[in-house]
Each structure stands twice: as structure tokens, then as C-alpha cells.
Nucleic acid binder design. Sequence first.
RNA 1: GGGGCAUUAACUCAGUUGGUAGAGUGCUUGCAUGGCAUGCAAGACGUCAGCGGUUCAAAUCCGCUAUGCUCCA
Length: 884
Amino acid sequence: MANFPSLSGRDIREKFLKFYEERQHKILPSASLIPEDPTVMLTIAGMLPFKPIFLGQRQAPQPRATTSQKCIRTNDIENVGRTARHHTFFEMLGNFSFGDYFKEQAIEWAWELSTQVYKLPANRIVPSVFNEDDEAFAIWRDRIGIPEHRIQRMGEKDNFWKSGVTGPCGPCSELYYDFHPELGDENIDLEDDSRFIEFYNLVFMQYNRDADGNLTPLENKNIDTGLGLERMAQILQQVPNNYETDLIFPIIKTAAEIAGIDYSKADEKTKTSLKVIGDHVRSVVHMIADGVTGKNTGRGYILRRLIRRVVRKGRSLGIEANFINQVAETAIALSEAAYPNVREREDFITSQLEREESQFLKTLDRGEKLLADIIADATNLGSKQISGQDAFELYATYGFPLELTQEIAEEHSLTVDIEEFNREMQQHQELGSKDLEAIDLTAKNALGEIVKSSGDTSFLGYSDLISQSQVMGIVIINEENSHNAKSATAREQVQIVLDKTPFYGESGGQIGDKGYLSGDDVLIRIDDVQKEGNVFVHQGKVDRGTINVGDTVNATIDRACRRRVQANHTATHLLQAALKKVVDDSVSQAGSLVNFDRLRFDFNSPRALTPQDVQQVEDLVNTWISEAHQADVNVMPIEKAKTKGATAMFGEKYGDEVRVIDFPGVSMELCGGTHVSNTAEIGAFKIISEIGISSGVRRIEAVAGAAILDYLNIRDKVVKELSDKFKVKPEEISDRVNNLQAELKATQKELEAAKQELALAKSDGLLSQAETVGDYKVLVANMGEMDAKSLQSAAERLQQKLGEAAVVVASIPREGKVSLVAAFSQQVIKEKKLQAGKFIGGIAKICGGGGGGRPNLAQAGARDASKLDEALDTAKQQLVAGLS
RNA sequence: GGGGCAUUAACUCAGUUGGUAGAGUGCUUGCAUGGCAUGCAAGACGUCAGCGGUUCAAAUCCGCUAUGCUCCA
């Protein structure tokens, strides 16, 4: 055992941040697990929030930063619990330099932190460097004083970092902890994870790789590091694996208690299940806290899968009832110090978990029933195996896990054809990944070049509606070939980048401004503005003249449209505030669209809204509008905004300074959009619809401001038309419709009954026409105008009344249509081998139709009524012949 | 984004090569009944998710749409 002080996970985190803060690093809070980068589903590394800075797409707000970043990775999910240190959720401690200090300083500090702060003995640390990185090698040897033979050189796979095929990259140096220094320096093999654990990775970002694979030195070299919190905790707390550190073990303990298990005495399989629970519960708690909800796509699906794995492991430990929330409570308690948002979102987390767990239990129930059928079939057939297809269908269609199928099959002495299952699975996977290629990148590429070279667009639109701007780039949009251009002329579709603009670029749900760009003899109508990073792309059509890169133009936005958007956007904020008041404080935004003519607001809601809720929300918003609250818009540090109580969206942009839209006492939200300066400007607010869009998510559509008149006009027209048609006052329309519906239904019923009665009466009149043939009665008749259904009841009744009989009746329900029904009694079928189905088909053929049915009752249809008499004659002859 | 499955009475669900729409629970009514899922009998309730197609005939087959479930990416 090594001799150093044990540190709690919390201490390790705090000491790391403090160490780098003392060295002029700014401590930044952990970014959301939902990354800004749309190409990545979850925050998978500590550096991910800084990626745009490293890639040169964004300016660094400060030269040095340090973070404790929550991360989720699920690619190695099968290893979780089985190895000592695989996780889906983990925390990465990192120090970052953006063109500031570099290799030497990074290595020195990493060493100092490890040996002075965490007090790891020097002889237990083994550094690795990239094969070709002599510089790093020299620093370890000369500055730190590590003997040469202890510095390990490693290949590109482990010790060279890149973010993609091209772009910034560089060598790494990693610090390993040696659990068994007594084994000596001769046989150091860092790949041997029973002896070594990598705990600190230093990335020296010093090159840029171009498309041809050439490396050129970067002007601004960066440092990106990561120290795994759970790994350091394992080392310092001297436990056999990451799960038994104080970061996770309390969760395991809770789960073990629920299951009535003593962890220390449990077998390996049980321990593994508990470890999986401990790991996954941390993941799901943080994911939900950051706004991920269970869905069948994307990150929502990842969340769902994790929750299901927890429930399954719980069941395998013998836990019957819903338990996930008890375990989650421990996880929440563990994280609240470092991540206060988790405790704040507790109710939401609990309700989501509850829902997901119950849903999964339902899914399992259904699967068990289906599987029971499959097993019964297999047993009946004397089969010893369940087919891979069946197992796969259970899995892919009904969400029933394969291992459960296997377990249950085993209880019935059956096996599952795994090879077939895997083949099915492979096919399924190929289907899923096939269609990913076909995205047209041409327009984006043309635009991409401009975006890269033009620099950020400065946005003036909060205060100015017009500006003199310089054209930085033009893309001509063309179906086959969109390209970069020096100029564009009349009728061409264009995308234009300006140095500064009053146009709002679509973001935060608010759509882009409309307007125009004008200059000497040139006019371009702009109908949408999109943002590429911080570059605003104005999309539109050249109306007349020619525009050139470098020209100065007047950029003017459409004020009327802007006013409408502003009214709708501020109304959206008021709506959210009202929902929190009326429905539940846990209501949170799940998506939003602010358009010129309407607004749409999706939100997580603990329950569906009643009509009264909706009315109350609408009234409250209108009250606030009429109270004329003045807007107070300020830019402030995010921490300050949070302490003031501003409502933030999940995954709010990673940045120090945020814009806060405050209507004091009513609503305070972080928002980059444009707003009215006083709520009175909105005028009025009207909710149009409230619907559920998926479980736990509701959508409200509403209109505000001038757009309300458009809505009212359309609605008014409908009401007027209706009231004209019904000849009643608008408020009486509803009653009138109700009455009409009831009347219609009653009339239809009466009609139906009358028809039946008529048919039966008619049929009774026919009874006397029945002829006796041998032991049987034969009746063939044309019943005239009668619908098919009545005809059928008539035929049944006739046959019943006649006893052993063969009845064929026909009708002409309407012009050009003939119906035929045959009803034969049992003896006719058994003794005389006549079947109604076959018989009626032959008869119908005479009239140019066809039909069939069961032996005792059959119906047919045909078109040629002129042949009906002939057909009935034939029927009679055949019946007489057949029965005598 | 791509597959699979489902949608039938107020609820839970049956409906086997296309041919009379059903069960249980609940509801209403009557009779019996001193409880534990009261008992017996009668009755009402259906746009078979919506739209289109094939067919003499569609809950059933085909296509589209909507909603939900589920797997893959």
C-alpha cells in the first residue's frame, strides 16, 4: 500500500480547480451534457465545449481556463461494471491554454499537482510521450528529472491527438500511476492495466493538418488536458476500482440495501450488476437535469437505454417494484455540491424516471406474454429452440431484451438461436446506417469558405434597424452548383455575408429578419437570415442591379415584421412565466418558435393542462400586457444572472456574459432575441391550441400583437358562415350542431330499423312461395329494392322459419347493382353437399359478378340486373336438382 | 434519419386464406343481498384512427397521413 492521504472526490475536484486558479486560470462551470456542437450527441470529453476555440472558429474569452466537466460516453457500455474503470458518466478535470502557455509549463504543473497536491510518490508516476516528440521527452528528463528509462515512448494510436482528418492536432504526454512499483523499471508495459492506470492526459496542440496530410506548425499553440476524477479517486482512496470510490459507492450501497444484499459478500455477477446501476444512475440523473428526456431517437434514446439497463439489472437482483428513484435520490445528493442544477431539477428528474421505469415495466410485461406464446408453440412442435427471428422480433419490435428471452427460454429447457439473431441484427444495423451519406454539402462548402475568412458579423439589431454595411462575401444559390462569387445580378438567389448588420439571424427559436439591401442602383430582397457560428448569412434574391464583394450597402430591416416578431417573442416569455405560475414551477422550455404571425412553445409539463388552466394562463399573460411592464435588458455574468433567478434554457451557450431580458416581477430569462420595450406594445395575446406532442411534452400555439387581428378575421369569417348556414346566432351554433347530430343519429337508427322490419315483413310474405323438394324446402325470390344488409337478415330469417331449407334471395339495392344471398341449413350442407359460398358464386357469375362466404351463409354482388331473372331461374333449377 | 409493430365499446383486449363486429370489466335498469372484487337477469354503448385504392364484398389486402410503442444510426 502506498502511503498518501486519502482525499474525497469532492476534495480532488476542488483542489484541482484551485491549483489552476492560483495559476491564473479562470474556473468555468461544467457545460451542459447537451453540446453546442450539433455533430456530437453528448458532451463526450472535457475539451468539447472549447472545441470551437481550438478549431479557430471562436475567440477565446480568456487565455487560460480550468473546468470540471461532466461527460457521457456509451460506446463501451458493455464493459461498464466488468472492468475497473469503464463509465458512461464521468467527470474530466482539465486545464486549458488558448495560445498561452505550452508544453513545458503544462508538464511542470501536471507534475507539481500530482506530487505536491495529490501527494503521489514520484516513483509511482510513469510518463509517456509520443515517439517523435523529443521536446516533451527532454522536458520530463531535464526539467522534472525523470530517469530516461522510465519515460515511455508510444505510438500515434495512444499519443497523438486529432479532432478530425484535417485541422489542429498534436502529440500527447500521459501520466500513469503504478500500482506495483516493486516490479521494477525493467518491464514497464503501460498497456498492462493491472499494474498501470492512465490518470492525466496532456495534449499539445501544435500542428494544423491540411487535406494532403501535411503538418504545419500552429501560430497559436494550445494546451488541452484531462484528469479523470474517478480514476484519481480510485488511486487516492486506494480502492480496487472506480465504482468503490465515494463518488459512486453510496449509490451502489443504496441499491444493495433495496435488494437486501451485502455488497462485501456478494458474488462477482451481483457486484457487476450493482456497479452498472451505480454508473448508469449518475448518467441518467445528469442527463435529465440537463434537459434530456426519454425518446426513441438521438440522445433521448441513449437516456432510455440507460434507464432500461438499470431497471433490468435491478430486476436481476430480485428487485420487483419501482426502485430507480430511491437510487436516483442518492445520486442527486452526491452531485448537488458540484452541480446544484441537479437538486433544482429534482422533481423533474423524478417524474421522468418514474415515467420511463413504468413504461419499461409495461414493455416487459407485453414481451413476456408474447414470449409465452412463442414458447408454447415451440413446445407443441417439440422444438428445443426459439428461432433467432422470433427473438429478434421480440427485441426490435417490442423492446424485449435478448438476455431476458434467453433466461425465460432456459426455464422451459429451450435455447435461442443466437447466430440467427445476430444475422438479423446485422441486417437491421445496415439498414439504419445506409442513408447517412446523402447530404448535399456544396452550398455549405461555398459558404464555409466565406464564413471562415470573413470573421464574425457584428449585430447591431438590438438598437438599429438600418446600417451601412460592407459586403464580405456572396454565394450564388443554384440547384446543381452553388458557388462563391465576386458579384451577383438581377434574379439570382444569393447568400450574402456583411461585416455588420441590423438583421437578426435565426436563433433561440426566433426566425430571421426580412428586409432589403440597397445601394446605387441595386436592390436585394432579404427573406431569411441564418447564422453560421457568429457569421450572419442573409438569404434573398437580387431584385435589380449588380452587387459586388466590397460594396457598401444600406441594410434595412422590415420594421413591421420585426415588430410582430418582438410582440410574439416577449409574449413567449410571458407565457412561460404564466405556465410556471399556473401549472407548476417545474415547467421548462423544450423548444420554441417565434414567427411573424404566431408563436409555438413546447414545454416539459408534469401533467396535461385543463381548459381552465389554459384560460388562466391566457388571462394572466393579458393582465401582464395591460399592466405595461417596462423591459430591462442587461448583459451580465452568467453566475449573476443565475443568482438573480433568471430562467435559463437547457444547454445555454457556454459563455461568461449573458443577455438577460427582465420584466421585473413578471419574467426574467436569458435570451439573445429581440423584444418589445414595454409589454403594453404586445396589445393582446390569444392561445390557439394546446396539445400533447410526446409523453411529458405539451405544445401551445398562440398569437400576439398585430398577428391577432389576422387570426380573428379568419376565425370570424368561419363563424359568420356557420351562423348564416344554421340561421342562428353565433353563440347558438354549438347547441344547434348538437341537436342536429342527435337528430341525425336517431333518424338513421329509425331508418335502419324500418328497413329491417320491411325486409322481414317482405320475407314473411314469401314463406308461402317455398316449394318442397324431397325433405327440403326451396325458396328462390327477388325481393326488389333492398340494401344488402337487410337482404341478409331476410335470408337468415327465411331459412330459420323454413327449417331444413335452401334459400336464395336477390335484391337491387340501387341502379346497376345486384345483391344475392344464399342461406342453407345444416342438412343441406351435410347430406346434399351443397355449399352456399360456392353456390352463390356460380349464380352471381350469370349477372357478371362474384361472391362467396361460408357454407351456411354467403353473399354476392353483381352489376347486370337484366340477367337477374335468368340467374334466379338457374338457381332454382340447380337447387331442385341438387336436393331431390 | 431508416426499419418493425400497434390503433376495434368508457377501459383491457379477442376477431385464423376478405363474407353476420365480440368477450371481460365498467355503465343503466329490475330482482335478490348485512361485509370479503356481492349474486342473478335484462339493456344501452362502435366513424373497427383518418383518407384513398383493390374487390361483387374490407376491421381484415395495398398506399398515404396521424398518434403511440420499439429497434438501429
